[in-house]
């Protein structure tokens, strides 16, 4: 698929934004500025960006506990994201949600859930709204390999299939759910095979190849927007870090980690862009510098922002006319 130079550079830049943002969040975590826990997206950038590069602003995204990358790819602001991670009043959820629940509804992000698999039925509901309104929007629903063992996955995919809802189910198979490897909890190798049971297309792709993701989502998007129903996409990928804050991830063989680090989606895409003459090494370096500055500014904004007033605890339990 031929993409314009600007689009390719935008894709590269978004992936870098996620990487640098996560590195910064991790650094702030080390400085005790991040309360609670964080689940880093490092290593999986090609999935979120490859998916969202196909989406319009009015399309929806359903996120997960490992959601920073989804939000950045769909266009959320880094400063409000970082502020939320630090529990600040200026954060997207005014400090109510934190890392696990960062969400920007104005950008079509339907929320990051801490309950594994819970987003899947929500995405189906968003697909239902689209169908009822008769628009050609789509919903991209992210979830992990672990989540695909929840009843919510099976129920949700089946319902979307039978109602032909415009949902793209994006399984980010990073081979582990916490310490549990895929082979310990399912007998199939390709989660995409599960699509057969629901009568929809299932496609397994290299989730560390952003163009492969882009193209697969492009197809799934055409199908969804055309009223032909959902697709299950399985993106094989890997998280470079542990599951959450202190997890040293000792359950993963060193050779496996090294093999996947070599397949780093950002390095791969950069090499490709240089090879096909879209950017030079120097230009890539400039983009990175620029991204680092934006991330630093976001961190500064977050650090300097105030915490919410304690009484704000009581707001927003209900909406008030």
């Amino acid at each position: 698929m031929e993409l314009e130079k600007e689009k390719l550079i935008e894709i590269y830049r978004k992936m870098l934004e996620i990487r640098r943002f996560e590195e910064k969040a991790f650094e702030l975590f080390g400085e005790n500025l991040v309360p609670g826990t964080i689940h880093l997206y490092v290593g999986q950038e090609a999935v979120a960006v490859g998916v969202c590069a196909n989406l319009r602003k009015d399309d929806y995204v359903q996120s997960t506990h490992r959601g920073h990358g989804h939000c950045i790819a769909k266009g959320a602001q880094l400063d409000k994201m970082m502020a939320e991670i630090l529990g600040k009043k200026t954060g997207y959820c005014q400090g109510k949600g934190g890392s696990m629940h960062i969400t920007d509804f104005s950008m079509g992000i339907l929320g990051a859930t801490g309950v594994v698999g819970a987003g899947i039925p929500l995405a189906v509901g968003a697909g239902l709204s689209i169908q009822l309104k008769g628009t050609d929007q789509v919903v991209a629903c992210f979830f992990g390999d672990g989540a695909s063992n929840q009843g919510a996955f099976h129920e949700g995919v089946n319902l979307a299939a039978v109602w032909k809802l415009p949902v793209i189910f994006v399984c980010e198979n990073n081979l582990y759910a916490m310490g549990t490897s895929q082979s310990e909890v399912m007998l199939i190798e390709d989660i995409a095979d599960r699509a057969t049971g629901y009568g929809i297309p299932g496609v397994a792709i290299d989730g560390n190849d952003v163009m492969a993701v882009y193209e697969a989502v492009h197809e799934a998007g055409k199908r969804a927007r055309g009223g032909h129903g959902p697709t299950l996409l399985e993106c094989k990928t890997y998280r470079h870090k542990g599951h959450s804050r202190f997890d040293p991830a000792k359950y993963r063989p060193q050779e496996e980690v090294e093999k996947w680090i070599k397949k780093d989606p950002i390095k791969r895409f950069k090499t490709r862009l240089i090879d096909i003459g879209v950017i030079t090494e120097k230009e890539a370096e400039n983009i990175d510098q620029d991204v680092i500055e934006v991330v630093e500014a976001a961190a500064k904004f977050a650090i300097e922002s105030p915490f919410p007033d304690p009484e704000e605890t009581l707001n927003d339990v209900f909406s008030i006319e």
Partner: peptide, 16 residues
């Protein structure tokens, strides 16, 4: 606790 979900930010959780 007050009749709210559990909030994230330390200042809120402490109040809660």
């Amino acid at each position: 606790a007050p009749d709210t979900p559990v909030p994230f930010s330390p200042t809120l959780e402490e109040f809660y």
